[in-house]
């Protein structure tokens, strides 16, 4: 009885999740009349805007990840080591992006950092790119911080630090050679998640008017029939790859630990 219900729930769920995936895949192959073909994908890949926007988003994702790691790892480390009393506040801040919608945050950016403000970031392309990167870092903050903090919890930060200090290591050495390698799996997980979030992000990029992958997909969707599902398949593959990589690094590290 329970098992019947369990299978029912699972199968219903799987159907709901698989149908759109099948749907988009099938649709993306229907560009040529009567037969399945990869024409839609060829079209997409021939489009220079695809490559331009895709590499733009990829670059921004990389920048976001690097910035995020430099921001989050030392902070989480420091809070664990020296400022446990600041923990609730920091955690609250890192969770804010889950409460304040992205569109509100970017709206604030646009009004706060316009050409006549104290920090006219939106005045130049590079300035806007920086602003967008900061926006993405904000979006990724809850995931990044939690991943790194969980990673730090599994190691004894205080003892490792004291041991390193007694051997003469400075703060930079401690962070780069002791802490970072120990939370590398967490950092990588956070990084791939960030990549998955950033690569197809639409709202911030569109409102800041940057040529990112998300707005490109939206534009194509408004004007074409077969390329959009092809893009959806590609985007899904990227998301899947990111999650697969997270699993891979986690599993790999478990094996490493088991061996040690």
């Amino acid at each position: 009885m329970t098992r019947l219900f369990a299978w029912g729930a699972l199968i219903f769920g799987c159907l709901f999740f698989l149908l759109p995936l099948v749907g988009m895949t099938e649709f993306s192959l229907k560009m040529r009349r009567g037969v399945y073909s990869f024409d839609a994908y060829v079209r997409v890949f021939e489009d220079p805007t695809f490559w331009a926007t895709f590499s733009y988003s990829l670059t921004l994702a990389a920048a976001t990840i690097v910035f995020g790691v430099f921001l989050v790892v030392p902070t989480a480390y420091w809070v664990r080591l020296k400022l446990p009393q600041a923990r609730p506040v920091i955690e609250f801040i890192t969770l804010l992006p889950l409460v304040i919608p992205a569109i509100v945050i970017v709206f604030g950016y646009i009004r706060l950092y316009n050409t006549s403000s104290f920090l006219p970031l939106t005045g130049s392309a590079i300035g806007t790119d920086i602003l967008l990167t900061m926006g993405y870092a904000t979006l990724a903050l809850p995931y990044m911080y939690r991943a790194v903090d969980t990673g730090l919890r599994t190691i004894d930060v205080a003892t490792l630090t004291e041991a390193a200090q007694s051997l003469g290591a400075g703060w930079f050495t401690i962070l780069a050679r002791i802490i970072l390698p120990n939370v590398l799996v967490a950092v990588l997980s956070g990084a791939f998640l960030t990549l998955a979030i950033v690569i197809g992000e639409f709202t911030m990029a569109a409102l800041l008017n940057r040529p990112a992958f998300g707005p490109f997909m939206q534009l194509l969707g408004a004007n074409r029939a077969y390329e959009p599902p092809a893009l959806a398949v590609i985007a899904f593959a990227i998301t899947w790859a990111c999650m697969g990589l997270i699993q891979l690094v986690t599993r790999f590290s478990k094996h490493e630990r088991a061996k040690a």
Binding site: P20, G23, M24, F27, G200, F202, G221, P228, W240
Partner: peptide, 27 residues
């Protein structure tokens, strides 16, 4: 794993997937 993927598969491509499935000409 799939939930991890699907929960992050939001936004523009998700809309495309549903148009291709439940839209007027969807599967």
């Amino acid at each position: 794993t799939f939930s991890g993927v699907a929960s992050n598969f939001a936004g523009v491509p998700l809309a495309f997937a549903f148009i291709a499935t439940l839209g007027p000409a969807g599967l």
